[in-house]
């Protein structure tokens, strides 16, 4: 599981300037109704920039998952605006939003969410298949991407035949294969041991991050805070602190 030394992902940090990837303005979100209402987000203002690894951190239940779901366009906020690369989700139909996600967003999940009956390469090919790229091309491109995450020799393995760390690598390859401009990861290391989690973070930082792409990682694991370029600390549905240097987080 060695990562190739020449980075195949077209990132050129020297020449690019950081741009706003996601802009959240006054976002609120409540679940349920009546006495059951849970105010998950209470007015979120946040900018996520390309070329940066932004972490959303905070105690369990503070609204991290809710926030990245809205940023990724899979959940509608109640109030406020969420603008992804200049496009406001509010102004899009469900269909447009779905298509936009398919082009602009990559997902990495805590529990990998690979389709168990597809091989590693086929799983990675899915985002390309969704964009109607023919199967042969898609699987081939998926194979290349898998090589770049150090799984060149496991292309035909089923998820069940892979370790947790390997599965997460497949998932990362899947989030990258169609070269989206935003990658959202919800607790990508929580299901892994510390060492493996660390390697996954290295991979994300190295392979996924590039100048015109933004990476948003939700975590409550302080041991990986060091990987962040920016940390947004949340509590009770609010951003309580945004800091550019993780060392300030007082860990």
């Amino acid at each position: 599981m060695t990562i190739q030394k020449n980075n195949p992902f077209p990132c050129d940090e020297e020449t690019s300037t950081k741009a706003v990837a996601v802009h959240c303005k006054g976002i609120t979100k409540a679940y349920g109704s009546g006495s059951e209402t849970v105010n998950a987000l209470n007015g979120i203002n946040l900018e996520v920039r390309t070329g940066e690894l932004t972490m959303l951190v905070g105690p369990s239940g503070c609204g991290k998952t809710t926030l990245i779901s809205i940023m990724a366009g899979i959940l509608d906020q109640d109030e406020g605006d969420c603008v992804l690369f200049g496009k406001n989700f509010k102004s899009m139909s469900d269909l447009e939003k779905t298509r936009y996600r398919g082009e602009q967003v990559g997902f990495v999940f805590q529990s990998f969410n690979l389709i168990p009956t597809l091989t590693a390469a086929e799983n990675v090919a899915v985002p390309l298949l969704i964009r109607r790229i023919d199967r042969k091309t898609a699987v081939q491109k998926a194979g290349e991407t898998l090589k770049n995450v150090g799984l060149g020799d496991r292309l035909n393995a089923l998820p069940a035949q892979l370790s947790g760390g390997q599965q997460q690598r497949v998932a990362i390859a899947r989030s990258l294969v169609h070269e989206p401009r935003l990658i959202v990861c919800d607790e990508p290391t929580s299901a892994l041991d510390h060492e493996t989690g660390f390697r996954i973070m290295e991979l994300l930082q190295y392979a996924a991050l590039c100048a015109d792409r933004a990476l948003v990682i939700v975590t409550h694991d302080p041991r990986i805070f060091d990987f962040a370029d920016r940390i947004a600390k949340m509590d009770d549905g609010r951003i309580v602190d945004v800091s550019d240097s993780p060392q300030d987080m007082g860990k």
Binding site: L95, R99, R101, E103, F107, F109, N113, I115, V126, P127
Partner: peptide
């Protein structure tokens, strides 16, 4: 769950 993942990843209804 997998249908949901596909949907999130941009598969239309």
């Amino acid at each position: 769950r997998h249908f949901g993942t596909l949907k999130a990843m941009g598969t239309t209804n």
